[in-house]
């Protein structure tokens, strides 16, 4: 039998479709079948994106000489998600999981997004602490630098700023 599509090569892929109780058969050669498959764009029926993704977490030891980041046996104290559970469903369980599995997630996130740090929007209310924390961190770093450089006058100013911020926080 010749291929229904190119009518040149031998048909060795036979597809039967049943739509609205109506049966249609298509006979294609391997080349045309491949194209047909691409065209209708189906992946293997058993393909699960979440599992695929979780598989990326499975190989933390890509770098030779660097010991694998062992998240094996780790369990999130808040929601009880384990690495095994994540491997099965590809979903994290709660906000705490991002700290619990931080080490294992890092390479995965980098593979997916090419980056690791969020640079976009910060929620106005629940992000307040974060913005404050960031400012405090910066000031403390600055203070240390000033102390090392023995610029005590400037350092005192920064110290007062830090105190003020911390007081505001309480």
């Amino acid at each position: 039998m010749l291929c229904d599509n190119c009518k040149q090569k031998e048909a060795n892929v036979h597809i039967t479709k049943i739509v609205n109780h109506e049966k249609t058969s298509i006979n294609l050669c391997e080349d045309c079948a491949r194209e047909y498959q691409e065209q209708i764009g189906f992946a293997q029926p058993t393909f699960s994106f979440h599992k695929f993704l979780a598989g990326l977490l499975e190989q933390p030891t890509m770098m030779p000489g660097k010991p694998g980041i062992s998240t094996e046996g780790t369990k999130c104290p808040k929601c009880g998600t384990t690495r095994q559970i994540f491997s099965q469903c590809g979903k994290l369980g709660c906000d705490q999981c991002f700290d619990t599995f931080a080490a294992g997630l890092s390479p995965l996130i980098k593979r997916v997004h090419g980056r690791e740090r969020h640079t976009g929007k910060v929620p106005k209310r629940s992000g307040q602490d974060i913005m404050l924390k960031k400012r405090l961190e910066n000031l403390k770093r600055k203070l240390q630098e000033l102390v090392i450089k023995e610029e005590f006058e400037e350092a005192a100013k920064v110290r007062d700023q830090i105190r003020e911020l911390e007081r505001g926080n309480c």
Binding site: H50, L53, G90, K91, L92, G93, D95, F98, L105, L108, I109, V112, E116, R117, H118, G120, K121, V122, P123, S126, G127, I130, K133, K134
Partner: peptide, 12 residues
Amino acid sequence: FHEERGYLTACP
């Protein structure tokens, strides 16, 4: 919300 990861979602 996480300082580094941004808005946290079930799927990475």
